[in-house]
Design a protein around this nucleic acid. Sequence first.
DNA 1: AAGAACACGTGACCC
DNA 2: TGGGTCACGTGTTCT
Lengths: 565, 565
Amino acid sequence: MLSRTNSMPWMDRNKEVEETNLWTQNNNNGGMENKDDAELGALSSFKSMIEAENEAGWYMSVTATPTAANSHEIDMHGGSHLDLGNISFSPKFTDADNNHPVLQQVDSSASCSPTSASVLNSLDLSHQLNYFLPLKSTLMNPIHRNLLEETFDLGRDHRFLESAFNQGTGMLNNGFNDLSTQSQMGTLSWSSNNQFSTNNLLQQPQSSGGFGVMGFGEGSMDGNPLLLNRSKILKPLDGFASIGSQPTLFQKRAALRKNLDSGSVSNLGALGLGGEINHSRSSTSLEGYDKKGEFSDVNERKRKNSSGDDGEDFSIDGSNLNYDTDDLFLENSTINKVEESGKNGGSGSNVNSSVTCGGGGGDHKGKKKGFPAKNLMAERRRRKKLNDRLYLLRSVVPKISKMDRASILGDAIEYLKELLQKINDLHSELESTPSSSSLSPLLNVYPLTPTTPGLSCRIKEELYPSAFASPLSSPVGQSTRIEVRIREGRAVNIHMFCGRRPGLLLSTMMALDNLGLDIQQAVISCFNGFALDIFRAEQCEDGQDLNPDQIKAVLLDSAGFHGTV
Amino acid sequence: MLSRTNSMPWMDRNKEVEETNLWTQNNNNGGMENKDDAELGALSSFKSMIEAENEAGWYMSVTATPTAANSHEIDMHGGSHLDLGNISFSPKFTDADNNHPVLQQVDSSASCSPTSASVLNSLDLSHQLNYFLPLKSTLMNPIHRNLLEETFDLGRDHRFLESAFNQGTGMLNNGFNDLSTQSQMGTLSWSSNNQFSTNNLLQQPQSSGGFGVMGFGEGSMDGNPLLLNRSKILKPLDGFASIGSQPTLFQKRAALRKNLDSGSVSNLGALGLGGEINHSRSSTSLEGYDKKGEFSDVNERKRKNSSGDDGEDFSIDGSNLNYDTDDLFLENSTINKVEESGKNGGSGSNVNSSVTCGGGGGDHKGKKKGFPAKNLMAERRRRKKLNDRLYLLRSVVPKISKMDRASILGDAIEYLKELLQKINDLHSELESTPSSSSLSPLLNVYPLTPTTPGLSCRIKEELYPSAFASPLSSPVGQSTRIEVRIREGRAVNIHMFCGRRPGLLLSTMMALDNLGLDIQQAVISCFNGFALDIFRAEQCEDGQDLNPDQIKAVLLDSAGFHGTV
DNA sequence: AAGAACACGTGACCC
DNA sequence: TGGGTCACGTGTTCT
């Protein structure tokens, strides 16, 4: 009850502008004084959407990339290393399919700090790894763009990732330095289709999954990002449900908000065309709306838009994205919030205390002038930035056991260890071999595995006893898994994982072609194993409706596993 | 004013037991049901101390490792992967130099979850990376042990780390599995000298830095850990200053608290012998004491000890460490807190709302029964765990530009990228060499750079710069970009990006097949645009050596861009 | 129903 | 002074 009442205020609160964490600043090079700041530059933000399978809920997140003008963002000031130097939007980016503009963040080239570590900045992982979150319906259109910087949205649902990762979808490649990283992306379009740049492919659209498009300003709001997928997170979207549709997402969102009060939400549109958001859980309607963590972020963004101008701001050709605007909104919203305070849904009681600028919250203190509001925004920015980074990290780590923060960190650590070990092994191997020496100048760069030339050890892996069962990676021999879902209409989702074998890629493609499936959105990775994630494929008009089992059978056959699962 | 009053309650609050995040659970194997949970097992917790150069403040943190008995910890329940299965203390662990017992966490061998990822668990990074935080005086005796698990304390002061990192102190080695990891540490001794197990050495004792020993139960309390070093963090210690000295740290801390009220603190001891804590900033005395983030953690821990039994609990030979005890304390403290609530220093206003179990905080709600207190503790645990992981991550990353969370994450991401690049380079190098193949079974383990056995090649690296413009993402209509590199031997790298069109995927695959290229490592994504990144493909033996330009031409042709770039 | 996870809004701190 | 960062305690949700 109270919560609901609270929720309303939150609605307003949501209006507050979100920070655009992701904004990269053009000008900020100068701003970055910390020499050490390593730029993550090359990293493109990873935004993805997830859709929950079982639930209608959507979560849409889009990251807006501000043009150079507004660019300065948190990072500029703060110490965030990740900031990519320049952000540029190319005007042409809008998605043809959808009218929805998609915001993206561009990873600027590494303008800033030439940190020691930054040597490899040019390398862009984003290409290499793309994690896709499955969209429930066909909405998911991850825009595969490098540019997006920090933000990325990923469904948080554990099941989703787990399955994906477990299967060894991890892929990443190392390999290239992409010059491309530096170059870049044009306009951002916010499409309802949820196109996102998904740098890393991660995913397997497995089970639930939230789906998010959002990220407006910074990419994702504080909470919103990928984690939202988590079922709870998804809920928030419920309120927003309509967002995705043809009209600007934001507009829709605004509409939703208006409508939201009614609660449970109806999911607005058909997924197919506009990105729409279904509420994953009908939940308690508004209440959830208000407080939900990430969700609130979404709301906030919506608010931002709504308060300002819904859709158009985001249509962001380039310069439009207004970080500043956002800020203004924020301030306004903040004010609103203050007014509204007292409710503050989840945070609840706190609100009264300091939030009220002049409001004289209930609290005794009231010490700080009116600043709290500012602080609030700053904190919000900070949270968002942190979340964005966290999700980015997640996107880079191929195996994520769970989607919770601690697990992401843990997995990242473990992954780091693995990589180090691997490097060590490679080094050993290399040393054991004759030539080597001159070849790898790069190696020196890294503090780790210090290339100590002297080491010619023979480590040779005696260390590793066999025992390593290495479940994860072991692709080969791994059981083949194929999931096929037929979405309404002729959309098809396919997830397949199996051991790699020569020609598998081609045979699979041919099999799909033979089925009359046009692959529209997919990520295929081939490393230890073969992972195919088709988020959207469409059957030819001519054909008969395909049965998922048929598709599965065909794929199994093409994979050489005749009938075996 | 108010704050001070609040602070008092906080003092009490501090008494609340901290969670022992780090505790590893012996028994919890069963508890880990999540298959995906990757254990970080091998990761030893990283505890380090930092001392501020210029400031006297210390922060001491010690992680106590519970014996198996109490072991079940957050992780058990929660999903933290990082938890290492068993913790064992070996009695002999005390530092000879100092009498001060040091708590450590042991990274158990990976008893728990045989997660997929965990393959390499045995590998212990801790050895590899050792980051040391400089102690101001000579105190710093980082115990270099693998065993410590999650907790690690590190100074947060930016200057500190920055300098350290800049100087290239990063080092890590990869390489070994330490059996020691599994074995372990015996008793924990809590020495004032601040011995810590510092798994990774990081550090350079540069400027400020806080120094911490603490971590009692879980390792570090929520906030306290390494971050504390940050000057602000350090402050908290001020209050605690005395802790380190001969008496149990906790006892001292308790004493300090008692004394603290006076405020500014005197730093207690001589560093040399007992670990003492100086307040980095005289700060405003109590007030700071109460609310400071990390610091508060420290207080809490102190509280825990104080409330419970100060020193002895921690002397922890083995079983003593009481997680349970802590919990009990927590509860008690929680209760106390409730009573005290209304002040709740920083959190301030919130307190009233729900915290009061029955208190009927000012807030309207009062919905939740009395549970809030529990929630509070859980949240505290969670925060601590998260912090611990974060710090652990930091400890693993050699270059940390700044100590703030976002930077840590960003640096980690960048580092990951670097490692991947490095691996790729090594792989290339390795391939170029003749032998290799059989040598590295390990490689298979990793998702990355899958050990494609076939690879015998030589890198010649005729890189083909040809216009690498390829911005990653070019969407439709965007210029098609194709990069082809022929590595020596028959390995080929291809990066291609162009607009998506139906059938492109298939035609491209067929084209590659026609070229006799076996795609071994690749990521293909299809969203707005078509992006093909082949990190490794190999030419058939039969074929003539392909010319990059030929490949490019074929691909362009298949993409329907005849000759256009 | 207890626990975990999250986002939030605060107060405090630092630069 | 003001923005950034942190820890905290909350409320909410999900499991």
